[in-house]
Every structure is written in structure tokens, then in C-alpha cells.
Amino acid sequence: MTVIVLAAVALLASTSFLMSRVQDQVRVIGDDAAPQAATAADLYFALSDMDAQVARMVLSNGKDSLANSQTDALGTYRERSRQADADLQKLMASSVGVLDLMDGLATYRERVWQALTAGSGAAGYYTQATNVLHLDLLPEAERLRTLSEERLDRAYASKQTTQEWAVALAALLGLALVVLLVALQVWLGRRFRRMLNPALIAATLLTVALVGPAIAVLVVQEQRLGAARDDSLRPFLALSSARAVSYDAAADTSRYLISDKLAFYKQDFDRKAAFLDGDAGLRSVAAGSDVSPYDSNQVLTRWQAYREAHGRILALADQGRDASAIGYLTGIRRGDAVFDFSYYDAAVAEIADNRQDAFDDAMRETSQLLTGWTWIPAVALGLVILLVPFSVRKRFAEYR
């Protein structure tokens, strides 16, 4: 009897502790590690778009015919600037280097202000601003993004290890307790010629009713979280990364005009576009079991439309028709390059939002699945521990 009670206590302690540990690790993934990874990806995207909007503002600055484009770019720049500030605040507590990034962002904003107020010297100040972005801010943002994704992977690995231990111990100790309870039942039946002991039967059924569902819950939550990571979170992060690249590529179109047709920016656009058009680019990250072929094709089709617009803008600029190139680039009417890019980005944003929502739903379902499993073992095994001495008390009393 003592061995049975000790086995029940061991099963209770291990199951309660490891279930509680799994719950805590799921919370770390859902409330900390995954949001941090998404925030770091969003920061990279916000910084990329800030520079794209600054390029638009520099090109349209002082041109009455492009006042609407100037206003649109300024509004988007302010929105992305607030977005970057919010992301940095969220990353402050868990990431090293955020303060340096904030200092760099302040320097960038100063260069942007100088570019917008310098008149004929705008191109020089904008070059300084975009150099700060590409040499300091984006590399640091990419480092934060990499670190946050590595932290997320470690959180998943740690939870998987705990889950494996929990399943193994629940199966091993649960089986041992059931065997001991059955053995006691058989011994009492032979010793006292009573084949059935209701208390021991109840204790055995309680043990089976606890261990089976506990293992099932652990296995199901692992499957759900793994699917949420592989089918929603990782595709979301990959799509966010490609989206940022496309924004930076779009800014190269403006930079080409600002720099008076510097070949570097044409080559830089071609390099980024080659990635986006390649096997690891938009074709891959916009597709998946969660996306219809039509929606994923829309991303590619709309991106190709912007690429064609980019080609026409550069052709106009190379012909010396700078005013027409700038008007086509910065205009916000249907058929202008900004409209084409916004149309493409809307398709990307819809897929990204759906993936983030799917991951959040999976996290909520997993948390609900684990609810109560810190006290359920205590109730079930507490009854088992009480039933065991109760089952033998009457039999020993009869013996006396």
C-alpha cells in the first residue's frame, strides 16, 4: 500500500509540475517570444518604408502639381515613424542594442528634416539619411530580427523538451500505478476471497482517466503549436521580410531619380527584384496551404505590374524627361507607380494579417486546452491516495 501511495504522489508531483511548466512555456511563446519576433520583423519593414516615403517627399517637394503626393507621403512617413517608435519600445526590455538603434533613428530623422528644408541641397542630405538607414539602422534591425527568431526557436525547443518529459513520466508512472493497483486488487482477492474491490476499481479508473487525457492534451498542444509555427508564424515572418525588401526596392526607384541616375540604385533594385522574383521570394512566401492560388498569384501579378512601372520610370529618366518620370513615380492616381505598389502591398498585407490571426487563434486554443491541468491531477490523484487505504481497511478489519 505504501508503494502505491508513493507512486501516486510521484505521478501527482511530476504531472502537476510539468503541466504547469508547459503552460508557462506556452505563455512565453504566445505572449513574449512570438510577439517579439513579429515586432522585430515589423520594425525592419517600418524603417524600409520610412525611407521610401522620404524619397517620395524629396522628389515632390516644392512642386505644386505633386502636392497631393507630398501630403500622402508625409502622412505615411509619420505613420511608419510612430510604428518604428512603438516597435522599439516593445523591444526595449528584451533586446540589446535598442538604444543604439534609437540614437541612429534620431540621426536619420535629423538628416530627413535637412533634406526637406535644404532646397537645392536636398539630394545630398537625403543621401546621408539613406546611408544612415542602410549602413546602421537596417543592419541593426536585421540583427534584432535574427536574435528574436532564435529566441523563439529556443522557446519552442524548451517547451518540446518539457512536453516529452511530461509524456514519458505520465506514461511510465501512470502504468506503474495501474499495475500496482491491479496487483493489490488481485492480492486482496486471493487473500480475502473477494474478487472485486470497489475502492480499488475506482482508483484504477481514476488513474487511467487522468493519465490518458493528460498525455492526449500534451500531444495535441504540441501538434497545434507546431502547426501554428510552421503554417502561420514562420510564413508570416518570411512574408514580412520579403515585404520589407519590396519597399526598399521601391525606394530605389526614387533614389535613382534623386541621385541623378546613379547606376548603383538601378543595380540595387535589380538585385532585390531578382530575389523577390526567385524561388525563395514572393512565389514561395506568398503561397501555402492557407492561401488560395488566386490570392498568391495576385501578389506576383501586382508586383510584376510595379516592376513594369519601375522600368518605364527609368526609361523616362534616361530620356531626360525627369518631370514626367517624377510625376509618374509620385502620383497617387490609378495607373501611377504609387498606386501600383499600394495595390501589390494590399495583397501582401491581407495574407500577412490572416497568418498572424491564425497564429493568435492557435495560441488561444492551446491555452484553453491546457486550462485546469495544474489542479486536475491533484484532484484525481488525491482521491486515489484516499481510496487506497480505504480499500484495504475493511478487508483487514474482517481479518481481525
Rank of each mutant, 00 (worst) to 15 (best):
L47A: 03
V179Q: 05
W187V: 15
S120A: 15
Q185P: 02
L169S: 08
S60Q: 03
R154H: 09
R82D: 07
Q25M: 08
L11I: 00
T374C: 02
L369V: 06
T374M: 08
W113M: 08
Q160D: 08
Q223N: 14
L144C: 01
S69Q: 07
R400K: 12
A250T: 08
V285E: 02
V211T: 07
S367W: 08
L47H: 02
E222S: 10
A349S: 11
S289E: 11
I29R: 05
R82N: 12
V388A: 03
A378Q: 10
A227T: 07
V285R: 05
F269T: 14
A346E: 07
L105F: 10
A84H: 00
R283V: 11
Q36T: 08
R307D: 03
D230A: 10
R334W: 05
A397S: 14
I29V: 10
T39P: 00
F192Y: 14
A244C: 04
L381P: 05
W165M: 15
I29H: 04
R271S: 15
A244R: 02
T207D: 01
G281M: 01
S259C: 04
G327I: 04
Y247I: 08
E308I: 08
G311D: 09
F236T: 04
S120I: 05
I4P: 00
G121P: 04
Y247M: 15
K272L: 10
A315M: 13
A141N: 00
D87M: 07
F396W: 13
Q23Y: 15
A378K: 15
V132N: 03
D279P: 06
R191S: 05
E110C: 13
F390P: 08
E142C: 07
T207C: 06
F275T: 15
F359I: 01
V28C: 11
Y343W: 06
L276C: 03
W303S: 01
G327F: 02
R255S: 07
L137D: 00
Y77D: 03
R395I: 09
Y256E: 00
V182I: 13
S81E: 13
G281K: 02
D279T: 09
W375V: 11
T146V: 14
V186A: 12
V211D: 00
S60K: 06
E365S: 10
R109Y: 02
A203M: 01
L59D: 01
G331D: 02
A280D: 08
M102A: 15
G382L: 04
S148Y: 01
A349Y: 04
G30T: 09
L300H: 09
R364Y: 09
M92S: 12
D49G: 05
L169V: 08
V28N: 14
A115P: 00
A315H: 11
L91C: 01
A37C: 03
R145I: 02
I326L: 04
V22M: 07
E365W: 10
Q53C: 12
E350D: 06
L206Y: 00
A280F: 05
Y294N: 10
G278V: 05
A274G: 14
Q128W: 03
L181C: 03
Q128C: 13
L316T: 01
W165S: 06
A168T: 15
V186C: 06
G288K: 00
S60W: 04
V54C: 12
L74N: 13
D318Y: 01
Q114H: 13
